[in-house]
Nucleic acid binder design. Structure first.
Lengths: 222, 222
DNA sequence: ATTCGACTTGGTCGAACGACCTAAATCGGC
DNA sequence: GCCGATTTAGGTCGTTCGACCAAGTCGAAT
C-alpha cells in the first residue's frame, strides 16, 4: 500500500489543470507586508504551543495564507526564525527600564522598574514564556549565540541608562559601578519573572521586588 | 511514486526472514534498567540539540538499542518525557544550597552558595540550558504546570534550609522572613545563571554574585 | 491596451517521525 | 532438557514536515 494521502493522484505524470481559467486569488500585497503578517502569525502560534508548534503550515494558516506563500516570503523556515529573533527580542524586555526614574529615591525607582517588568510579564505570560524559549534556543544554536548576547547587552544598557538618569537628576554618587548594578538589576528582573512564570505566586514576586529594591538601593548608595 | 524508502519491500505480505538462524542479541537486562538507559540517552541527545532533537529513533540509537526497544520500555514518547521531567528536574539545581553554610558570616555563605551554583552551570552549560528549556515547556504544557511549580518550590525549600541552618549555628535573627529571603536567593541564582548562559561573561557574573551577597546579607541582618 | 515582473495558488515530493507488529532468540524455572 | 515469558531485531503503516514547482493572476509602467 502506497503511503499516499487518499484522493491524491498516484501517478507522477501530468495532472489535469485544476478548474482552468477560474482562479480566485487574494489581493496582491508587497512581499515585505506578507512577511510581517507571517511573523505575527508565527508569534501567535508559538505563544500557544511553543516553538515546536510553529510549522510552516501552521504559521501560514494562522496568517490566512496558503502554505506556498511561506516559501515565497522566506527562503526557509530558518530564515523566518532568524527574522523573528531580530524583531521580537529587540522589542521585548529591556525598554521597560526607560520609563521610570523620576523619583529622587533610588529604592523607589528600582522597585517601580522591577514592578513594571513583572506587571508586563503577568499581563502576557505566554509571550514571555516564548521569549525565554527563544533566548534559550538562540543560546544553544551554533550560529545564533550573538543574538542572546545582544539581547542581554541591550537590557543591561537600558538599565544602566536608568541609573545614570537617576544620578543626573540629583541622585548623587553610587557606591558601586553602574555597570555592575545594571547587570544585577537585569539578573534580578530575570530571576523574579522566571520564578513567577513557574509558580505564578503574585505575593512572593512582589515581596521579592521589594526586597531586591531595598537591598540593592541600600548597598549602592553607601 | 509511492513515498516508500528505497530498498524497502513494497508489498505488505511475507518478508523473507533476515539471515535466519544467525542472530546476535544483546544481554538480557530488566526493563527498569533499560528505561534508565534510555533516559540517560535522551538527556545526551537533548543536551546537544534541545528537546526537539530527542526523537524516539535518536534516543534509542544513542542508547545503542533498536528503535523497537523504545516502545517496549515506554508506552509512548510522552511517557518518556514525563519520566524525564520527574527524574531530571528533581535532581538538577536546588540541592546546591545544601552544602554551604558553615561560616558565621551570612554574606560569605550566600556568596559561596551563589558561586557554587554558577560554577555548576559553567561546568556544563548545555545541561542547564536543557533544564531551563524543560521548565519552560513544563510551565506551558497544560497538564505539567505542577512540575515547574514543584521544582521552584523545592529550590526555595532548600535555600530556606540553608538560612535556617545559618541561624541555628549562631547566625542570629534575620530582619526579613527566611521565606522571602529564600525566594530572593533563588531568583538571584536564576537570574545570574540565565545572564551567564546568554553572555558567558565570567567577570560580570562573579561581580553580580558579590553584589547580591553583600546587598542581601546587609538588608537581612539589620 | 499591452506588456512584464511581482505576486498567488494548489499540489507534489522525499524524508523523517511516532506507533505498532511479527518472529526469532534468549533466559529462568521446572 | 523443555517451556512460557521476556527481550531483541527489524520492518511496516499512516501522518506530517520542509521544500519546491508550474501555472495562473494581478497591477503598474509603458
Amino acid at each position: 500500500m502506497a503511503a499516499r494521502r487518499a484522493g491524491a493522484p498516484a501517478l507522477t505524470g501530468k495532472v489535469p489543470p485544476v478548474t482552468p481559467g477560474t482562479r480566485r486569488t487574494r489581493e496582491h500585497r508587497p512581499a515585505a507586508e506578507r512577511r510581517e503578517q507571517l511573523l505575527d502569525a508565527a508569534v501567535e502560534v508559538m505563544r500557544a504551543g511553543g516553538i515546536a508548534a510553529a510549522t510552516t503550515r501552521a504559521v501560514a494558516e494562522r496568517a490566512g495564507l496558503p502554505q506556498g506563500a511561506f516559501h515565497y516570503c522566506f527562503r526557509s523556515k530558518d530564515e523566518l526564525f532568524s527574522a523573528l529573533l531580530d524583531r521580537e527580542l529587540d522589542a521585548s524586555l529591556g525598554r521597560v527600564w526607560d520609563a521610570v526614574a523620576d523619583t529622587g529615591d533610588l529604592e523607589a525607582s528600582i522597585a517601580a522598574a522591577l514592578r513594571a517588568i513583572l506587571d508586563r510579564v503577568r499581563s502576557d505570560p505566554e509571550y514571555h514564556l516564548l521569549t525565554a524559549e527563544l533566548v534559550d534556543v538562540a543560546a544553544r544554536t551554533p550560529g545564533l549565540e550573538h543574538v542572546a548576547r545582544r539581547e542581554q547587552a541591550a537590557s543591561v544598557e537600558r538599565a544602566g541608562l536608568m541609573l545614570r538618569r537617576w544620578q543626573e537628576t540629583g541622585g548623587g554618587e553610587l557606591a558601586v559601578g553602574t555597570r555592575v548594578l545594571a547587570e544585577a538589576l537585569v539578573a534580578a528582573s530575570t530571576g523574579i519573572t522566571s520564578s513567577w512564570l513557574s509558580a505564578r505566586d503574585d505575593e512572593a514576586a512582589h515581596a521579592c521586588v521589594a526586597l531586591f529594591a531595598a537591598a540593592l538601593a541600600r548597598v549602592a548608595t553607601r
